[in-house]
Amino acid sequence: MTWSLRRRGRIIKREEENRTIMERRLLVKQYELLLDRDICIGCGICADNCPKEAIIYSPAEFRGIRAVTRPSIDFDPERCVLCGECVSLCPMHALQMRIEREERVPVIEMNVFPLATRKRW
């Protein structure tokens, strides 16, 4: 792990088996955003709707007409603000958010649904 990533309050991204974990540890509060890569089908709904454009979508790679890799998503820890928008939208329930180890989604709790795509329309 590089030194700069360990500064206070930064989101740290790590891979664990088939999961990608985005974690922010504050002294008094801990946040996690988890992606289960086994479940994710790479539909890209989260990437289209992320209000901070923090989800990077990689389309499937083709060799001829055969897909050799599945489409997938990845996070940009510098942009993500852990709002939980992606979690609330995921049709496969591949994303999960935990605050203090408890499953919580801030945007649902606050009853909001920001539209990032509004900018593109």
């Binding site: 008094v28 852990l82 801030p106």
Partner: peptide, 16 residues
């Protein structure tokens, strides 16, 4: 009512 929490610079990023 704000749903987003980020580290507070004033608290040296110890709290949100």
């Amino acid at each position: 009512v704000c749903p987003v929490e980020v580290p507070n610079e004033f608290d040296e990023n110890l709290g949100p």
